[in-house]
Structure formats: C-alpha cells, structure tokens
C-alpha cells in the first residue's frame, strides 16, 4: 500500500503501519527532496552520502511527525542514518 507524504495523518491508524510502509514513505520523501527518481534511493545508504543538509533532514522528521501524528526528535534521521534503520526505529515507537 502506498502512502503519499501529503496524506492526512489520521487514517489509517498508525499502529497498523509496517516497517516497509515507513521505508516506502521515507524513500518518497528523500527522492522528492533530492529531486531524483524514487527507484534511485538506496535504503541502506547514509543520508549524509546523499548530501542532504541538516535543515532538510530535520524537515523530513517533521513531515514524519505530521504523517504519523506523533512526536520524534528533530535529529531522528542523523541518529539512525539510513532509511532502513530509521524505519525500524520509528515502527518500534508507534
């Protein structure tokens, strides 16, 4: 199932969201930010290697808050560094 980042946070219930759905959402966000095709985003590559700056990374964590209607640290993406690890952590906190 595909979640658009702009979709309202209220549905479906966050509890039911899986790691791969979060990964998919993050891929989409990173692709949008970098203006590259989603297929080119590597889930194991460090955000730093993509050359994302701190404001962009904090912005993604804010968008994630909006999507899941839940608070996360502004430094969430640095703390976990890859899409895979971030998604795993986020799912464990739902």
């Amino acid at each position: 199932m595909f979640f658009s980042p702009k979709k309202n946070s209220k549905e479906p219930s966050p509890k039911s969201i899986t790691i791969s759905e979060i990964e998919c959402w993050l891929c989409q966000k990173i692709a949008e930010t970098l203006k590259i095709p989603k297929a080119e985003v590597d889930q194991q590559k460090s955000f730093l290697e993509y050359g994302l700056n701190s404001i962009q990374l904090m912005g993604v964590s804010g968008d994630l808050e909006k999507w899941l209607d839940q608070r996360f640290s502004p430094t969430l993406l640095w703390d976990h560094l890859t899409i895979e690890k971030t998604a795993e952590y986020v799912q464990s906190k739902l």
């Binding site: 730093l48 290697e49 993509y50 050359g51 994302l52 701190s54």
Partner: peptide, 16 residues
Amino acid sequence: ISKIRLAISREFQQQV
C-alpha cells in the same frame, strides 16, 4: 563526486 558531497555534508551539513 560522492566523496566531495559526503565531506561537505559531514563538515558543514550542506548540500552541494
């Protein structure tokens, strides 16, 4: 190219 990007991103948190 990717080493330059990584270095700038690490040191200055900026995108080239």
